[in-house]
């Protein structure tokens, strides 16, 4: 089922949380809402679910206007950040909840209900834990119960709020890949909120990067990374050096004073150069295993310049703390203010 959000506006008191959001999500797509905390991504998810009502704008499911329909009747699966499991009910009863609260006409018969709950528990690989209580489960298991519970009502839209936020790093990675696999099998239109760009890149078909209640860019991960529409998107998707004209003009050929070159650490070399006109001095070298990270101070910049080398590419002996170097970008993106400019 497709979702179309148009011109959604929402305020908390005085502060605008959503500032005219337009977004369409295709049927069967897995979309990430990515942004820093406070950018409005969770609010947007809750507006889609019907847990919050926008001040203006419309929410459509498959063309049908559902803006004024409450969460109860939107038929949307929602997974809460802290799971919100019913602590007084067993895992089985948690999953069965959505089926039990239906009107008696729609409620499945006992055997049917049992079969469906067990099928779902098998799907999330928790078949043996049906009689346990939420307090007896690990974080990852609780997350999967929450997912099974949301899927029990056979929603055509699944919304997940920071689905892996409360889990430790290892479990998070496993669950992420498992969720992607699950989505590929059941093809329910899914939207999840995250502040972790790695998570968004690994899971999503498309990513909407949000900032201050707006969508900065909506694209697939590759486009987002190689063609960021704004400095914000570029900064948010990972570490980036922002070189002023004096440091990049020689390589980019653009010497307008107000143009900044954004260079990823892996697209930058630090060349040992005793005769450099504007030299940087290496302040730290950190061995990260597969990668080696070098930081250099430059008088024109407040933040250190960062270059990351693959281990095999690292020029051993030529770079050492205190050495004078020239930053040499191999690939870059140019921005004038908020505007992307194409130099070549």
């Amino acid at each position: 089922m497709s979702i179309e959000l148009s011109d959604i506006r929402y305020r908390y008191g005085e502060a605008p949380a959503l500032n005219g959001i337009d977004l369409s999500i295709e049927s069967g797509e897995l979309l990430a809402l990515l942004g820093p905390s406070g950018c409005g991504k969770t609010t947007l998810l809750r507006v889609t679910a019907g847990l919050e009502f926008p001040d203006s704008g419309t929410v459509r499911f498959e063309g049908r206007d559902v803006t004024s329909i409450s969460a109860r009747n939107r038929h949307v699966g929602f997974v809460f950040q802290h799971y919100a499991l019913f602590n007084h009910l067993s895992v089985f009863e948690n999953v069965a909840f959505g089926l039990r609260v239906r009107g008696w006409r729609l409620r499945p018969r006992r055997a049917e209900l049992k079969r469906r709950v067990h099928d779902l528990l098998e799907l999330v690989q928790l078949g043996e834990l049906a009689q346990r209580y939420p307090a007896q489960l690990s974080g990852g298991q609780r997350q999967r119960v929450a997912l099974a519970r949301a899927l029990a009502v056979e929603p055509e839209i699944l919304l997940l709020d920071e689905p892996f936020g409360a889990l430790d790093a290892r479990v998070r990675g496993d669950l992420r890949r498992w969720l992607r696999g699950l989505h590929d099998r059941i093809h329910v239109t899914s939207v999840f909120v995250t502040h972790d760009q790695e998570e968004a890149f690994e899971l999503a078909d498309r990513i909407a990067v949000m900032n201050k209640g707006r969508i900065e860019q909506l694209a697939d991960p590759q486009t987002l990374y190689t063609q960021p529409a704004s400095p914000f998107v570029c900064r948010f998707l990972g570490e980036v050096n922002e070189l002023p004209t004096a440091l990049h003009a020689r390589w980019t050929g653009v010497d307008a004073a107000d143009v900044t070159a954004f260079v990823r650490p892996h697209d930058l070399d630090l060349d040992a150069d005793e005769t450099a006109i504007a030299p940087a001095r290496i302040s730290a070298i950190r061995d990260l295993g597969p990668l080696i990270r070098v930081e250099a101070e430059h008088p024109l910049l407040s933040a250190p310049i960062v270059a990351v080398y693959e281990r095999s590419r690292f020029p051993i002996g030529r770079l050492a703390a205190g050495a004078t170097v020239t930053p040499v970008p191999r690939r870059w993106l140019l921005f004038r203010g908020e505007q992307r400019i194409d130099a070549t």
Partner: peptide, 17 residues
């Protein structure tokens, strides 16, 4: 109120909630 919100998205009415 998170559990109540969860119940709401699962289709529970005021009474069963």
């Amino acid at each position: 109120s998170e559990q109540e919100q969860a119940a709401l998205t699962l289709g529970a009415g005021g009474w069963s909630m």
